[in-house]
Design a protein around this nucleic acid. Structure first.
Lengths: 209, 209
DNA sequence: GTTGAAATTAGTACGAA
DNA sequence: TTCGTACTAATTTCAAC
């Protein structure tokens, strides 16, 4: 394969990791950083860009894969060119103790690209891609409304996707130097219009029903 | 590169395309389908899985890339293992005619993975990845609140990401056979709890300020 | 963790169907 | 357009340092 990538952003990485698994160092993050922009780069070229030997690159690459830190490689496609120009978000209120059914039905809906369980007034948010607005309506009224687990929905359309990073890395963050004390006097920042919405009642342990 | 993928879902593709660009046929969709699961597959292996010659596979692969249908290749990583276990959605109300500033500020926030302009009561939704909940608070109160373009925010946490497909293809959809007339009698589907929220006033032409 | 050299595989360029 | 083959170049593997 040919090398065809452009240089990624330089950044000051930090070691970051949770629980079991590989202890990621700065080199690992650099590898992920390169792979984020060019998932098809050869390991040889990757080694060169990261500044390590090929053997080392192969070892680390394989370790990241085996460890699960790299879940898979994929192509990013242009939805519009592929014929799915309409994107919508559907906020769903799910009936208690019917999450299992809801999840099962979700798996059967190919137009759903993303689904997350959230805190706040709704229980889940799903993102769908379809070819026209009528399909959004059909999706909500014919398919979602037909699921007993679904109590109510609220749909908004996405007019534009301003920013879409493949993923965020800790090494992107410039100021990780943990502020010593969360200074309670944020100068003249006007708070008050900033709401944080916690989970609705009785939904604390529903994450993995 | 070694072949290491598993079989993707068989599906009945349809031709789908918008405006200028490649006219995508069933073979193109099959290619995208394979690439979605394994973005690092060699073109030779891709050709074999799609059932075309290597030369043809190279031609189509390159065409999809040149056309922009394939935007880039990337690795999908495990956020938790990478040290960014907290995901939150921030719904932002943006002050009219300050979108440009809002966009500019966004680009300077590395923890933002996704930002979309939406219809509904808010103007934009941003998704962030950070290492702990305190950072969410800091992000909202220290950074977002400091942007004049930001009128108000509402934050929810993501408790679990139930489903995440690399992307959706038209060829995934089983029943594309356009219903002849959108039958206005959807049997006994209980509507009424299904809301569609349009754009707020005066925000029609703001997509690309 | 690094380098170099062998074996394999990938990418390109043709002519033919 | 697509296919099949041969040619060239690059990548991965492996062994020694």
């Amino acid at each position: 394969m040919r090398e065809m990538s452009r240089e990624g952003g330089e950044s000051g990485p930090r070691s970051g990791r949770i629980g079991i698994g590989l202890e990621l160092d700065a080199v690992h993050f650099k590898i992920l950083d390169v792979l984020r922009e060019n998932g098809r780069i050869s390991v040889a070229a990757l080694a060169e860009r990261v500044g390590i030997s090929r053997a080392n690159a192969y070892t680390r690459f394989e370790a990241l894969r085996a460890d699960g830190t790299i879940k898979r490689f994929t192509a990013e496609i242009d939805h519009v060119r592929a014929g799915l120009g309409i994107t919508a978000l559907i906020f769903v209120t799910v009936r208690q103790q019917m999450w299992r059914q809801f999840r099962a039905e979700l798996a059967r809906m190919p137009e759903v690209e993303y689904c997350a369980i959230t805190t706040g007034q709704h229980d889940a948010m799903i993102q769908i891609r379809v070819s026209d607005v009528a399909e959004v309506h059909a999706m909500v009224t014919e398919r979602l409304a037909g699921i007993p687990a679904v109590k109510a929905t609220e749909t908004v359309f996405i007019l534009d996707e301003v920013l879409k990073r493949p993923y965020v890395l800790p090494s992107d963050h410039p100021r990780q130097q943990r502020r010593p004390a969360p200074d309670p006097s944020p100068a003249d920042v006007p708070l008050g219009k900033m709401r944080f919405v916690g989970a609705a009642e009785g939904r604390a342990a529903l994450r993995k029903e």
